[in-house]
Computed example of a mutant assay.
Amino acid sequence: MFLRWVVEKPPFKFDDDEEHFNATLAKLLKPRFVGSKGHAEVQDFIETELKRLDFITLRNDFQQGVNITNLVGFWNMRAKFYLMLSCHYDSKKPENGTTDEFLAATEGAVSCAILLNVAKTLRQFLIDRWSEKRSVGLAVITLSYIGAPNQTFLSYFEVTNDLHNLIADIEQDLRKSGQLDDCHVLFQKKTHYDRDLLDDHIVFDEQDVPVIHVSPQEFPNFIYTPADNVENLHYPTIRNMIKIIRCFVHDFYEKWQYFMKWRQTYAINYDFYDD
């Protein structure tokens, strides 16, 4: 085990900003299938928000049957290694002949809002501690199907199982210190290497990029329906997820050098590209 167990100390406390999360989610909750007006509006909003938080933003446009744009927000582009947090911001297109509006809250909107909120509440930490260092940086591309009740999250990849267990330990530490909402345990130290849900992370795995897929074991039962809206969200899960992911990013950064020593000792390749 590494990172977490090098120095035992209470979890770092950050100021929450639920008002920002709610306002961000409201901007994202609209039909936003590729090619729609809502998709363009959400795309512009995410890019503007990342710039407002002092991230360097890049657009990667490509075609895959339709025109697709990946948005990437970099903190410290001079870094050699990156911790990359990602999710998709588009939504399902209604089937021909239907008038249903898929707001896709758990399908992508909540995940985007979580990551933007994590970026905002970590901003001062990044400014104070990581603006000038070149050993590691943060790239926020913008998790999966998060926000429904009774969700649990398992480890789907052996190469990142230790990092998954680190997240599970962080959740327990935050719970013991009274920082989490009253809610069931989200991250369990269980492995399901052959039961991962298909999602956008697959392209990274195919390129041998180590992946932690923060996704529930099953899709929410209202996924791809008009019921995937704010009224059916489970806010204790969302609040706890924000705090857990934020603390994970903080701990990963603070213990990066120990992580690199561990990586070299055990010859584990976590590079996102070949040197």
Rank of each mutant, 00 (worst) to 15 (best):
D194R: 00
V159C: 07
N165P: 09
L163S: 00
F157T: 02
D173E: 14
I238A: 02
A227E: 07
D169N: 15
F187G: 00
I212E: 07
F222H: 04
D200L: 07
Q188S: 13
I223T: 00
K176D: 15
I167G: 05
N221G: 01
S155R: 04
T225S: 12
S215V: 09
D173I: 01
T160H: 11
F157M: 05
K189I: 07
P210I: 07
V203P: 00
D182R: 15
D162C: 05
P226W: 01
V211T: 09
D208Y: 13
C183W: 03
P210S: 08
L186I: 08
A227P: 02
I223R: 03
L174H: 13
I202K: 10
L197E: 07
N229K: 08
R195Y: 03
D196W: 05
K190L: 10
N165V: 09
Q217W: 02
F187R: 00
I167Y: 08
N165K: 14
D199Y: 11
N232W: 00
Y235G: 08
D208V: 09
Y193I: 00
T225E: 10
D194I: 02
I212V: 14
Y224I: 01
D162T: 04
N161D: 15
S177E: 14
F219G: 02
A168Y: 10
V230P: 00
L180E: 12
C183E: 14
Q172T: 11
L174Y: 09
V211D: 04
L197K: 06
H201N: 12
Y235H: 12
V159R: 10
V214I: 15
L174K: 14
N221F: 02
N229M: 06
P226N: 06
F157E: 03
L198D: 13
L180Q: 08
V203D: 10
L197Y: 00
Y156E: 05
I167D: 08
L166W: 06
N161A: 14
F157L: 04
Y224C: 01
E206V: 06
D173W: 08
I170D: 11
L186S: 06
E206W: 10
Y193V: 00
V211F: 04
D228A: 08
V230H: 00
L186G: 05
I238R: 00
D194T: 02
D173T: 09
V230G: 01
D196V: 08
L233T: 10
H234R: 07
N165L: 12
P210N: 09
E218S: 10
I212Y: 03
I238M: 06
H164Q: 12
D162H: 07
E206F: 13
Q217D: 03
V203S: 13
Y224P: 01
P226G: 06
D181M: 09
V230S: 01
D194L: 01
F157C: 02
V159F: 03
D205Q: 14
T160R: 11
P226V: 05
I202Y: 11
D173K: 13
H234V: 04
V211C: 10
I223K: 01
R195Q: 13
L233F: 06
Q217M: 06
Y224L: 03
L174A: 11
D200Q: 08
K189T: 11
P210G: 10
I238L: 02
T225M: 05
P216Q: 08
L180H: 04
C183N: 14
D205N: 15
L197G: 09
D162Q: 06
N165Q: 15
P210V: 10
T237R: 01
V230F: 01
V185W: 06
R195D: 08
